[in-house]
Design a protein around this nucleic acid. Structure first.
Length: 509
DNA sequence: AAAAAAC
């Protein structure tokens, strides 16, 4: 059997790999590392979670042992689609580069330029970047890419989805063609193939098992829900409580950033140990939330699809899809956050009548039918609860809640759309391939309209101006959730009564 | 129906 020692890595690297507890390389590592060490271009087709990162980090470390970096002339460049992934790659260099003395610089948006400039000045052996900030530095003349010997393009198909390809093309053209290129993508759509033809030289193709099939270690279930947000939130709370026993930690995915912050605040109000993660949040908050979740200081992370791919959190016990993802591949990525490294995991997806179309395409993609949750959440005592916070008289900030009238009282009795109908329609949709028809009353729009218009206007304003400092979660709190909140302000759970410093200070210190 | 990324 192949071991890391057989791949041609240097003793320093092998020592660090061993110290990290690994002896057997994954297929992508075994396939890519020997070629990378021979300075060949590599086209790696692999999903995240296959050990892809180490398949370029380890050979790079070995190759970097020869030579030194010069100021403003990084020796290697790694491009990542999101800030979190870039940071994660940096952590890998720290872990496996513990026997090396390499300068690693992380160039991502949302944080100050100064540290990044200092590291560039000092000479970076490894530059890890998201495209926007990299080009920003370049345009300011702080960076020369003519000294780059190794270029890594990671998650290329995701870069495509995100519209980064023009940036990638531009960056590729700034780097001498004598470089070595390591290129990774989970899928190979035509645009990506074109890119590899343009920028790779006689690449060695390393392909590992496609993970369009979901991990066997993940137990997937569908949960019927009414379509209204408050119904979904109530259902989710019931579900989390029903799963309480085996629930070590959980990621809850929403389709929209707005829903992430809404749900986050609702959960906090209901005294769940929850945090939030989405791309409009202050970078400091993003980093802190993710770090706390990884460290187990935060039990529940409500997130947008920024967290769907690639994030390496080995121990997530549950994934909840608050919304059915619109693109079926995202479902695979999301539930792939659990059941990692051979551990078992559970994935629950809330399904409303309007979701059955997307559900059908998910089941088609993964090639199996997902079971419906058979536990009866309605028998749980908590399901009689309204969407209001538990009435304990006093919340964390000591304000009395007793004055407030429980507006939602009795709502739970107004049962959502017949749940049986949802299942039947979903099954019909699968058989016929057609869009299921469920009778739905058009949503009544009355008093809510002006409020919605105001929110929309505000959103557009927000988009137009640069990201406000201190965006999340405090600011968003005041926006559009009067229905879901009382006059009490939830304090972020996991920090006790204290508002953590990162939420109170301005971004730029 | 969305999200992601530079200031």
């Amino acid at each position: 059997m192949t071991t890391f020692a057989d791949l041609g890595l240097s003793p320093k690297v092998l020592d660090a790999v061993e110290a990290a507890g690994y002896t057997i390389p994954t297929p992508i590592q075994a396939g890519a590392i020997p070629h990378a060490l021979q300075r060949k271009d590599v086209l790696g087709i692999a999903q995240t979670g296959t050990g892809k990162t180490a398949s370029f980090v380890l050979p790079m470390l070995t190759l970097l042992e020869q030579g030194r970096a010069r100021a403003r002339m990084p020796r290697t460049l790694i491009l990542e689609p999101t800030r979190e992934l870039a940071a994660q790659v940096e952590e890998n260099f720290v872990k496996y580069g513990k026997n090396h003395r390499l300068n690693v610089a992380l160039l991502i948006g949302g944080v100050s330029f100064d540290d990044q400039l200092r590291k560039l000045e000092r000479g970076a052996d490894v530059l890890i970047a998201t495209p926007g900030r990299l080009l920003d530095h370049f345009e300011r003349g702080k960076l020369l890419l003519t000294g780059v010997d190794i270029l890594v393009i990671d998650e290329a198909d995701r870069m495509l989805d995100m519209g980064f390809i023009p940036d990638i093309e531009r960056i590729c053209k700034l780097i001498p063609f004598t470089r070595q290129t390591l290129f990774f993508s989970a899928t190979m759509p035509p645009e990506i193939t074109k890119l590899t033809e343009q920028f790779l030289h006689a690449p060695v193709r390393v392909e590992v098992a496609k993970a369009a099939t979901t991990a066997k270690t993940v137990e997937q279930q569908l949960v019927k829900s009414g379509k209204k947000d408050w119904e979904k939130r109530a259902k989710l709370r019931d579900l989390i409580r029903a799963e309480e026993d085996g629930l070590k930690n959980a990621i809850i995915f929403c389709n929209r950033k707005k829903d992430v912050s809404e749900l986050f605040r609702s959960l906090v109000k209901h005294e769940f140990d929850a945090g939030a993660l989405h791309g409009d949040m202050d970078q400091r908050a993003r980093t802190t939330m993710l770090a706390n979740f990884k460290d187990g200081k935060l039990k529940i992370l409500v997130a947008s699809d920024v967290a769907a791919r690639g994030l390496d959190i080995p121990d997530v016990s549950h994934v909840f899809n608050f919304d059915v993802p619109i693109h079926s591949e995202d479902y695979v990525h999301r539930i792939g956050r659990t059941g990692r490294a051979g551990r078992s995991g559970k994935a629950f997806t809330l399904v409303t009548p309007s979701d059955v179309k997307h559900l059908a395409s998910i089941e088609k993609l993964i090639g199996e039918d997902i079971n419906w949750y058979d536990g009866d959440l309605t028998t749980l005592p908590v399901s009689e609860e309204t969407d209001e916070a538990p009435r304990r008289g006093r919340n964390a900030r000591g304000k009395s809640e007793s004055k407030r009238k429980p507006r939602n009282e009795g709502r739970e009795r107004e049962r959502p759309q017949s749940e049986i109908d949802i299942i039947a329609a979903a099954e019909r949709a699968k058989e016929t391939g057609e869009q299921p028809v469920i009778e739905e009353k058009p949503a009544r729009k009355t008093a809510e309209k002006p409020q919605k218009a105001a929110i929309k206007a505000e959103n557009e304003q927000r988009r137009a101006r640069p990201a406000a400092p201190q965006e999340q979660p405090r600011r968003e709190r005041d926006r559009d959730h009067r229905r879901d909140r009382g006059d009490n302000e939830p304090s972020p759970v996991g920090f006790g009564d204290e508002i953590p410093a990162f939420m109170l200070i301005d971004t730029k210190i």
